[in-house]
Design a protein around this nucleic acid. Structure first.
Lengths: 215, 215
DNA sequence: AACTTTGTAGAACATTGTTCAATAAAAGTT
DNA sequence: AACTTTTATTGAACAATGTTCTACAAAGTT
């Protein structure tokens, strides 16, 4: 049954063709200026053909998001720090996550910031609920677990902490993306200070066990 | 010259009329479904009239943003905690900021998440650069300053810290907005834990002065 | 009363996402 | 090889969008 496979391959290739064109448009003109017709014109096909390969525009954007997300995951997964230094590992991973996101601001915006319902639903499926089910967060979660288990922290607190780190890192990324005029050294300072404050701050707190604060 | 003033008043009233209609549409149908024509139909005017009172759609959205932002600022400014307890004050303010934002997810999304260039520029003018120039951040900044000055922290670090707290709080808010299916108690837990981790974590770190970490 | 400014509407345009009916091409079946 | 079914592709069409332009009426000024 070689033909069926070839057909599927060809179909996938055309889907890739469409996605690549879409990706280029997003890269050159921004997410807002992506249109079905521009994609069609770029690949020199009629606009209608898009709907033979994708359900609708949201579908295309979902796939674009998935790609961007995959890049982030790869960047995260490729971090190899000696596993006996989980704190350092967490720092490096956080930094990698931030930098991966900054290298593809448009895709990241598509992943994280879109408010169209379909895109939102997709985002939710990756970022919502327990972090075990979210690819990128799972990796972060794993590192956190290794790190925090040694400090007799209960499971639910670890889960909460992972989510909060993910959320606040997202916030920093958004800040850095929005402030595209920011200088390189200022950006570096912010990232550095962020990791200091958030990661190290949290670690330090835990290492002092659960002493209550009444400042 | 009473007539000129009345004219201006009438003009402002119609601008308000338009903004209110826009606001209702955003509230009921979401930011994505706001359209000039819907506004016109809601106020029972022709679509063209909109352009007599606003430059374009982005202009309207900017004003919508400004309103939402004003609400957040009010919520922040209304926090009155004894000034001799700056840490507690910072906690309450952070919480208020989060809750104000969650009560108007659409406006907040408009303020923070939009990627249209005009909206972006506007957002930038409020959130970008030094926090002294950003109304909402300035209040936060002020509280931080009071709090951190006592711990001989230099100005630039305070600035960085303020920005990071603002950014990560933004991240949490976005997370909570995106996860609209989240339960009340879970949301509460997250906010509580966030304040614990971020605010208290930072405070604790500072109270131990600048000891370096080599975990 | 004549003139100018301001408010309003209607028609029109280009662009968008999407659908539908028709057709060409390919694959499968006899 | 002839026929049938499936797949690929197009062109025309539709409705909704943001926006502009021309025209015109109303209000204000002189």
């Amino acid at each position: 049954m070689g033909i069926k496979e070839r057909k599927e391959r060809e179909r996938d290739e055309r889907r890739e063709l469409i996605l690549n064109a879409a990706s280029e448009i997003v890269a050159s003109e921004g997410t807002d200026n992506l249109s079905v017709r521009k994609i069609a014109s770029k690949i020199e096909y009629s606009p209608s053909i898009i709907y033979h390969y994708f359900q609708d525009k949201d579908d295309i954007q979902n796939h674009l998001m998935a790609r961007g997300y995959q890049k982030i995951i790869s960047a995260l997964a490729s971090v190899q720090v000696p596993p006996d230094q989980p704190a350092q590992r967490l720092r490096v991973m956080t930094r990698q996550y931030i930098e991966a996101a900054l290298q593809m601001p448009d895709e990241f915006k598509a992943v994280q910031l879109s408010s169209s319902t379909a895109v939102l639903a997709f985002t939710a499926s990756m970022f919502q609920g327990a972090s075990e089910k979210k690819p990128a967060l799972r990796i972060l979660h794993q590192s956190l677990k290794e790190l925090l288990k040694e400090e007799n922290m209960d499971e639910s607190t670890i889960e909460l902490t992972a989510q909060i780190i993910a959320a606040s890192t997202l916030g920093l990324i958004i800040k850095l993306i929005l402030e595209n005029g920011i200088g390189e050294e200022q950006r570096e300072k912010l990232i550095e200070h962020y990791i200091r404050c958030i990661i190290d701050g949290m670690l330090l707190k835990k290492s002092l066990s659960s002493r209550q604060l009444e400042v």
